[in-house]
Simulated scan of single mutants.
Amino acid sequence: MNILFIIFILIISSIIIKIYLRLTIVKCNSQMCLIGKTALITGANTGIGYEIALDFAKRGARVILACRNEQKANEACRKIINGTGNENVVVKLIDLSSFASVRAFVEDVKKSEDHLNILVNNAAVLEVGLNSLTEDGNLLVMQVNYFSPFLLTVLLTDLMRKSKSSRIINLTSVMARVAHGFNVNKMGNAVGTLNDYGITKLCMILFTIELARRLDEREITTYSADPGLVNTEIFKQTPSNMHNLAKFFKRFFFKTPEEGAQTPIYCSVAKGIEKFNGENFVDCQKIKRYTIVERQQSKQCWDITEKIVSLKPNEIYLS
């Protein structure tokens, strides 16, 4: 009887949590038109990135799908064009596990575009294990989730400065709140644990804070956007012993990709949030930062990352 009672309590608790989560889903209500604007989204062929790209296309933007898998990206592109009637949607290939690919991608974008209004750093992996190293010698999760988005953003800053009121959106995660053992001086060291994912998202928050400071008094603002727990393909990369548990939780408790896309979309199009430059957003509203950070820490994180990605003096367009 005790076991049955415990099961009953767990079921009731799960139902209550599910109802609460459904009632607290927030939608971006901005009707901002993006005709004449250009938006670039990494990892846009599926999940949250696809939903963001779809929303921007509906608003009339020129949308660049920055993806690694050409076939899936082309399929997503066709689907967006057919669904919105906006034919100004293009695919450009980028592999965030390669700094050379990031640089080649930026050169391609600069040749084809004369301005860029919105950059959404969405792509991420949940890879763990010391064997997951990139050609640049970095842990895969660190390079894809943080080092390469850093490099991509800095290299595109001069293009974004040609546009008025441009915005940079860095997707983060609640995992940044529980990340432990972070040492800014050891970012380049391979660790290979699940905690690394949270550390990459914490780094994205530090990056956003420092980027906002360096873009001060310019018409580019930047925001960290936490989409919440979302049912996306990223959980296919979870360790096998966690896969079934993740599958259950994501189906029952997590947001849909469309729901998860609302906060990044809000940060991209909402009016009047420029005063929150460098801040963190959840459920379409500014929240307190997940961690107490000092300017010195965000600056130190920036300086070390700049060396890891081998930025050249002529590639830095920030103060």
Rank of each mutant, 00 (worst) to 15 (best):
S30Q: 08
I273N: 09
Y50I: 02
P227R: 06
Y266T: 03
S224G: 06
G83W: 11
K247G: 07
V309C: 10
F252P: 06
L311W: 01
R62T: 09
R78K: 15
S240P: 00
V141N: 02
I81M: 12
G228F: 10
S166P: 05
Y20W: 12
S132C: 06
V230L: 09
G129N: 05
L119R: 05
D114E: 15
L159A: 02
S268R: 02
A104I: 05
I292Y: 13
V128P: 01
L23M: 12
C267D: 05
T305P: 06
C267V: 06
Q237H: 04
H115T: 15
C203G: 14
L23G: 04
Q296D: 09
A179D: 02
V293T: 01
C28M: 09
V90R: 03
F8Q: 02
L4C: 12
R213P: 05
D108Q: 14
M32Q: 13
K92A: 15
L159G: 01
F8N: 08
L139K: 01
E113L: 15
L119Q: 00
V191K: 11
L130Y: 12
S97G: 14
K186E: 14
L194R: 04
N189T: 12
Q297V: 12
F249V: 14
Q285A: 03
T38G: 00
Q143L: 06
K299T: 04
N231Y: 13
G181M: 06
P239I: 10
N280K: 14
M175T: 15
D55G: 09
G60R: 10
A104H: 11
F276D: 15
N82F: 11
I205N: 09
Q285P: 00
V63L: 08
A44W: 06
R59K: 10
I6E: 15
Y20P: 06
H115W: 14
M32L: 12
M1D: 12
S268E: 03
V26I: 13
I234S: 10
V293W: 10
L133P: 00
V102T: 14
F276T: 10
K250F: 10
N86Y: 02
M175P: 00
E75P: 05
G85Y: 13
L116W: 09
L152S: 02
M32Y: 13
Y197D: 03
I265T: 03
F249D: 10
N121W: 04
I316T: 04
K247W: 10
V174P: 00
V120I: 10
L311P: 02
K286H: 07
D158W: 01
K186M: 11
A270D: 02
F56G: 00
E219T: 00
C28T: 12
L211T: 02
S98W: 01
N277K: 11
L140Q: 05
P257R: 08
G188Y: 04
N138P: 00
A176M: 08
K110F: 05
A261R: 00
S173I: 12
K286A: 15
Y20K: 14
P264M: 07
F281Q: 02
V154G: 00
K72D: 11
N314F: 07
R68D: 11
N69Y: 11
I15W: 13
I287E: 00
F249A: 14
